Computed example of a mutant assay.
Amino acid sequence: MAQQAYVTDTDNGGTRSERPHPGFRRLFSRPAAGRWGDGGVWRRGVLVAAAGVLLALVMLAHSRIPNAVGNLGSLTETFLPWLGLLVLVLLVLALVRRSVTALVAVLVPAVVWLTLFGGLLTDKTAPGGDLTVVTHNVNADNSDPSGTARDVAASGADVVALEELTAAAVPTYEKALASAYPHHAVVGTVGLWSKHPMTGVEDVDIKLGWKRAMRATVTTPAGQVAVYVAHLPSVRVKLEAGFTARQRDKSADALGEAIAGERLTRVVLLGDLNGTMNDRALNAVTSQMRSTQGAAGSGFGFSWPASFPMARIDQIMVKGVEPESSWTLPRTGSDHLPVAARVRVDTTAS
């Protein structure tokens, strides 16, 4: 407890009296930030209010943030959902400042965030579907490929796509998955395992100079599906260069062009795209396909890094088939989480 300071007065009768020091009264007589009932609640918190409006503008106009300098736009879009944490910070500051102006202003980015991502907070999963698919970046440095393969197979998926395969690890994955998946193909550093027959396996040129994408026709009981597997180039955040993603962007355009030319009407894309659905750089792909997580998932479905997932860069996307459910699988020996979805190939079925 603070100790009061006193001053001593001597009256004309020679008696002494003490009273609190006036500086002490000024310091402790009212809260530094003011009271909710005084007129200052509208004048205080101007900076917090301005920050709230700015945050709302960033979320609303993220597509207009230029990529010319360090791909700042794509970087913002990669972690766009996390801007919701800034809304909470501003709310706390508004309460600390006891500012009605700030509180009202903070409602603006809160509404914008809910408009953009509120739908992901609801459970859109549904029963049914006739094909379960899984994609997993297994990590080239994975120390337990056999365990990873067993974990993925335990999901019961009909089709499994693996990315970041090394030549040394491929035989291990082939052996571990052979009993559950009689059909498989590996092209470069990506592979596809299926319980159903596969034909038309071919490399997909994504302008890298080495093979990191493939296509195959999987003949399911409900009909043929063109399945693409892709591992787009990694992106980096560097102080001197910003968000470096030029090669990823070029490969995304090539992948989108290949999918646009697909002859089958039912298409499933599995892979590590090193980008989120919000990232404009993936527009060549995202503009023509649906994300199973957005359409039939529950939550954000973040897949990377596995230790503390912050972004959904591993994607399952479809066109011509109906997503019924989407989820992430438990962590394996990789730095990514496996991503799974169940889709309905026979869209005429009720």
Rank of each mutant, 00 (worst) to 15 (best):
G200Q: 13
S74V: 00
S298Y: 14
L255G: 09
L95W: 08
E77K: 09
L75V: 00
A245G: 14
I259G: 07
W113H: 11
A178C: 07
V112L: 07
T8K: 06
N12K: 07
F243R: 12
V58E: 08
T199I: 01
F308N: 13
S350P: 00
L60I: 14
T276H: 10
T292N: 11
W210L: 10
R280D: 08
L27H: 12
T78V: 10
A105G: 04
H196Q: 15
L90V: 01
A349I: 05
G73M: 12
V138H: 01
E18A: 11
M317A: 12
L239M: 08
W327T: 09
I65N: 07
G191H: 08
V48N: 11
I259T: 03
G39R: 14
R246A: 15
V345R: 06
S194Y: 00
I313A: 05
A230L: 09
D205H: 04
P66F: 01
W82P: 05
S307R: 12
D314V: 06
N139A: 11
A168M: 02
V237L: 14
V190A: 00
V229H: 00
T219N: 15
D203S: 14
T10P: 02
S307Q: 14
K175V: 04
P127W: 02
D38V: 07
L47R: 12
A56W: 00
L273P: 12
V201S: 13
D38P: 02
L116F: 06
Q3L: 08
L75C: 11
P81Y: 02
